[in-house]
Write a protein that binds this DNA or RNA. Structure first.
Lengths: 348, 348
DNA sequence: CTTAGCACTCTCTGATCGAGAGTGCTAATT
DNA sequence: AATTAGCACTCTCGATCAGAGAGTGCTAAG
């Protein structure tokens, strides 16, 4: 039942666009009269109704009930997004302000990621999601052992890409900071740039302490490897709480549930990881048959970062009737910004 | 208008408790008949009504309208929480399961904090908040400089208490890992356990590189100092979305807004930081005049960690009609658990 | 002090009705 | 053949109303 460009006359496309636009604005069914009055079309409402009829038959719009205006269907939104949407670039002033915020005083990801979420939420007036970037191929970069108290040691592990993992180790006896540093240096030489597999393949050391630390390193690397995405940053919940799509009080079908269900989110992310290269934006409309909770919502997702090295996901979740033009360009813009920042500061 | 224990007869206390309990269960006004039927009181409904009348005059309960049952007032909840609530300890089996989850395979805070949020949310059926622990007196513990690419260097800064900050530095020229390590070691010796003030008081080094790095260290320490709390972990949003108190669609008065407004949250936290030692649980009912958004909600907060060294906040946010007994003991339990874990792994 | 009994008040539900919105169709027009 | 004016038709929405039911407050008796 897939429609393409050529199935519709240009007038039908205009009408569909206007219906989408108006319905996005008002959340109400759109009447033929509204269309000609508010948008100054040079045709009569009867003509519009005829066209609406065709669009209804094509399954792109529908009537909630006899004698109501029209509302875009899922299919209609898909068609709109695929063929009709025009990205509305952010005003240059806004872009500059935002860029400036990111670049000021050269902070790190822990500053950029929440900021990205906040910017996305503001620009799209929806819920934003940003995951910390994550490397697919985990490799050792650096280790540091810091004596803390008694035989307790803080291990700080830096992976290629820049992810940092920490762990407290309880050693069998007390070691001086000097000997811990020596040991760390040894690891730094031996393991630099090595993957989990390569480290596992190494001959086991005779020294039990070395063994213990190497095990801890591998442990942390495994944990990191199992992550589908890094930590999740959310923003803009309040943008969306008052919309009818999200306020739907039917207990177990709130789209916001999804945000707390890591497995589901990972599903969602995986899908985009698999189908898109960095730079492509994916728009999921109405749960696409898979996510019941997203029945009335749309998700716009993209990857950012550096392909095959360090990348994360970012996007927004909003009601299906959202301003796709704005939203898509906001997602693009923020993704590009983050990608640039990551490229500048990549740790390899 | 403060009531204390002795203002009420014990029968009145029972009736108030039952009203609170029943209203918590059903979210409906409670009728005198319901009370004697469902709780098997050995008195007549007329007597209950008389007592209800007194309680109403005392401002502890109210009628939404003539000929409706009674609902506890804010004042009523406060009295209940101060005088009548009984903590219902979690079942021993549950406690064991949870404790086990925390202690298994000795992970770190990055594992415990989300877990704490999740446990709290489950046990209280409300929204849980957990902030990463944070030290009030910032002091240098350890620095590591890791050569990454060209003249770019990753600085990893460990503070006393165990907070880790990272930053990418762009140096003027390329340094070998060895010289970077030497420099880091010098810092580790010179700055160990020093506070911001102490470091600032040191004589400035002649070496521009040393200057740059020391500036970066101070920068990060300042940033950390300015934090009221660490990162925030949330869970259990879906527990609460369907309750009438939260679904209230009046745009700008959703209690959930608060969760995204860091300044407001910090206010809330500060209040508890100031008024309570670790171990004390604070219950805010109905926004306490300060937080309009919390009009129909209650917040239960406590600190965890080690007083004056490393502590964070944790608690829940739920509808005013919540099961305070459960909630308070859940908060206590999780706080104690985290405090123990932090005590075990404190970095000093 | 407690309780049975009863009148009273207020909400809630469902039914009814008219107004209004918006369409679909038909026949006339370009 | 496409467009349009005109009109009948359908459905929703809001207001109004009545009856049932819930729950109370009061009174008078135990």
């Amino acid at each position: 039942m897939k429609r393409n460009m050529t199935d519709l006359t240009s007038r039908q496309k205009i009408i569909l666009s206007l219906i989408v636009h108006e319905h996005t604005r008002t959340a109400q069914p759109v009447a033929s009269k509204t269309l000609i009055e508010d948008y100054g079309l040079q045709i009569s409402s009867a003509t519009v109704r005829n066209e609406m009829n065709t669009l209804t038959e094509l399954g792109l719009i529908r009537q909630p009930h006899t004698s109501a205006g029209r509302v875009p269907t899922e299919e209609g939104y898909r068609f709109f997004v695929s063929n009709l949407v025009q990205q509305t670039a952010l005003p240059i002033a806004t872009r500059n302000t935002i860029t400036h915020q990111f670049y000021q005083s050269r902070r790190g990801l822990d500053h950029w990621l929440p900021l990205a979420a906040s910017v996305l939420a503001n620009q799209s007036q929806a819920v934003s999601l940003v995951t910390a970037p994550h490397s697919e191929k985990i490799a050792f970069k650096h280790i540091e052992l810091i004596s803390t108290r008694g035989s307790q040691v803080l291990m700080v592990l830096v992976l290629v890409g820049g992810e940092i993992r920490q762990q407290i180790l309880a050693l069998d006896e007390v070691y001086s900071q000097e000997s811990l540093s020596r040991m760390a240096n040894q690891f730094n030489q031996d393991l630099e740039n090595k993957s989990v597999r390569q480290i596992e393949a190494l001959e086991a050391s005779a020294d039990p302490l070395t063994q213990q630390i190497q095990a801890a390193i591998l442990d942390q690397m495994h944990l990191t490897e199992e992550l589908v995405t890094g930590e999740l940053f959310l923003d803009g919940l309040s943008n969306v709480l008052s919309t009818p799509e999200f306020a739907s009080t039917n207990q177990d079908h709130s789209p916001l549930r999804l945000l707390e269900e890591r497995p589901m989110l990972n599903d969602l992310f995986s899908r985009t990881v698999l189908t898109e290269d960095i730079g492509g934006v994916q728009v999921l409309i109405g749960g696409e048959g898979t996510w019941q909770d997203l029945r009335d919502c749309a998700v716009i997702l993209t990857r950012y970062g550096i392909q095959d090295q360090l990348s994360g996901m970012l996007g927004i979740l909003g009601p299906m009737r959202m301003s796709y033009g704005n939203a898509i360009s906001a997602v693009h813009f923020v993704a590009d910004l983050l990608s640039d920042l990551i490229t500048d500061t990549l740790i390899d």
